Computed example of a mutant assay.
Amino acid sequence: MTIKERVVHIATHKGLGKVSFFSALGLSYANFKGPQKLSALSAETLVRILRQYPEISPVWLLMGEGAMLREEQQLNEQSVALAAEETQQHLIQAQDKTIRSLERQIEFLEREIQFLRQP
């Protein structure tokens, strides 16, 4: 399947009429049928398609590999992993702040003990 055939497949999958699908993208359906379907698409057109349909896998669209739709679970797992990493960084910063505060308290108490031990 060519890139253009995959683009037509997106329209079919979405249940959209091909003419209106391509018109919404600023394209002509005539470029996606007959001998024209063998011609290349510009990078700008590919970006426009992926922006309009972010659920479409760029790997599938460009190379025909994998699933057409990005896996929602994979996207969610990436979001969760990023959130967990941010949370972990905040915890580490809070723990560092607590440690520095406790170190200052210990230094203060040690000085106070030394002062109290003086004759």
Rank of each mutant, 00 (worst) to 15 (best):
F108L: 06
Y29E: 07
A84L: 12
W60S: 05
L61V: 03
V80E: 14
A24L: 15
K97A: 08
R51A: 07
T12C: 09
E85A: 13
A67S: 04
L46P: 01
K33W: 08
P58N: 03
A11D: 03
G17I: 12
A67R: 04
K37E: 05
K14I: 02
M1L: 04
G17Y: 06
N31D: 12
I113A: 04
S42E: 03
R117V: 07
V80M: 06
R48V: 04
R6F: 10
V80P: 03
L62S: 14
Q114T: 13
R70P: 00
L25D: 02
T98S: 11
V19E: 04
H13V: 00
A11K: 01
P119A: 12
L16K: 10
S23M: 14
E110V: 10
E103P: 03
L69W: 01
D96R: 14
K97R: 15
Q88R: 14
V19Q: 05
R51K: 08
G15K: 00
L109V: 02
L91H: 11
Q78H: 13
S42L: 01
T87N: 13
Q89S: 15
Q78A: 15
E85W: 07
R100W: 01
K33H: 12
R6V: 01
A24I: 12
S20V: 06
V8N: 08
M1C: 06
E112P: 01
Q78R: 15
V59N: 15
I3R: 12
K37L: 06
A81W: 09
T87G: 15
H9Y: 08
Q88H: 11
E5L: 06
V59Q: 15
R70Y: 06
M68P: 00
E71G: 04
A40D: 12
P58Y: 01
E107I: 03
F115T: 09
L69R: 00
G34R: 04
K33C: 14
V47A: 08
A94R: 07
F108D: 05
R70A: 03
A67G: 03
Q89G: 14
L61M: 08
T45H: 09
I92L: 10
V19W: 09
L69G: 04
L41S: 04
M68H: 01
F115Q: 11
E103V: 08
S28R: 09
V59P: 01
L102A: 11
T12M: 07
L75M: 14
H90I: 10
L69Y: 03
